[in-house]
Design a protein around this nucleic acid. Structure first.
Length: 277
DNA sequence: AGCTGGTCCTGATGGC
DNA sequence: TGCCATCAGGACCAGC
């Protein structure tokens, strides 16, 4: 399930391959994703050069331009999506929904569960912030502005347990179910604790834990970037060594107590009751 | 305004 | 072996 680190590694991997390349054609096989793929992409994109690849939260933005056309291709991988560079002779598979035809290789979007999306935002790169899906997004956890003070102020307004609050993309982006549990373990904070009852000091630790968890996953993914981008499709997402996620009943790596699992906001939460308060 | 639960989709899993 | 029910997950959305 791609979270922020996976999306960022995807961006970094595609960057050298796509930057400055000209799009020859577009193939839409399954327009029905989370939102329909706009049919006008087939007329807009051919002839466009990829000027930049940016990331906002878990969204990827491919800035494209040619005389008379400027805009950004907005891509979200949902939970089962991936973008791969494939050679032109590789036949499309069942869940390959969208394709950019490039000079030597094609960029193929595949997403079995179709929670992802491919959309178009017209205008210069700055205009992409205006897109309805991006306009309301919260802070980037890897941006300098995200720190303990910011987090403390943001959590002060929320009475819910902290874990689902951390996953609220309107507050901060990119922290999904896995990294929320992992970051809380790292900070020693219980996922059940009310968000507005975490001290400033512990918010510092939590902010640092979120940054560290995400950064380490990006670094881990970066080392396998080549395999990922050029994978034949069988390879899944790179995995971090999870401390608590999906380890219910297993021994805590810190205290050897049992990792506990419970349902929170419709999601599974994992934590160590001994190490987290 | 914040919070809850429903929704989309398909592959994996487990019970019978 | 096959069939069915359940679950997972991001993020929007309606309804408090």
């Amino acid at each position: 399930m791609p979270e922020l680190p996976e999306v960022e590694v995807c961006r970094q991997g595609l960057l050298p391959e796509l930057l400055g390349r000209r799009i020859a054609a577009v193939r839409v096989r399954t327009p029905k994703l989370r939102y329909p793929i706009p049919p006008e992409l087939a007329e807009l994109l051919p002839g466009c050069v990829v000027r930049a690849i940016r990331r906002r939260g878990k969204y990827l933005l491919f800035d494209c331009a040619r005389p008379g056309v400027e805009g950004s291709l907005l891509v979200h991988l949902g939970m089962s999506g991936n973008l791969r560079l494939v050679s032109p002779d590789l036949p499309p598979q069942k869940h390959d929904h969208f394709e950019l035809v490039l000079p030597k290789q094609w960029l193929r979007f595949s997403d079995p569960r179709r929670f992802g999306l491919v959309l178009w935002q017209p205008g210069p790169p700055e205009a992409s912030d205006d897109h309805p899906l991006l306009a309301a997004l919260g802070i980037e956890p890897l941006a300098p502005a995200f720190d303990g003070a910011w987090l403390h102020a943001a959590l002060a307004r929320r009475a819910s347990p902290v874990k689902p609050v951390l996953m609220d993309s309107h507050l901060l982006v990119g922290v999904g179910n896995i990294y929320a549990s992992e970051s809380l373990f790292r900070a020693g904070i219980s996922p059940l604790r009310a968000a507005n009852r975490i001290s400033r000091e512990r918010c510092e630790r939590l902010a640092a834990a979120i940054r560290a968890t995400l950064s380490e996953a990006i670094a881990a993914g970066g080392s396998s970037i080549r395999d990922y981008v050029h994978s034949d499709g069988s390879a899944g997402w790179f995995q971090i060594q999870a401390a608590v996620y999906d380890r219910a009943g297993a021994p805590c790596r810190r205290c050897a107590g049992h990792i506990r699992q419970f349902r929170q906001g419709g999601r599974n939460t994992y934590y160590c009751p001994h190490c987290q308060h």
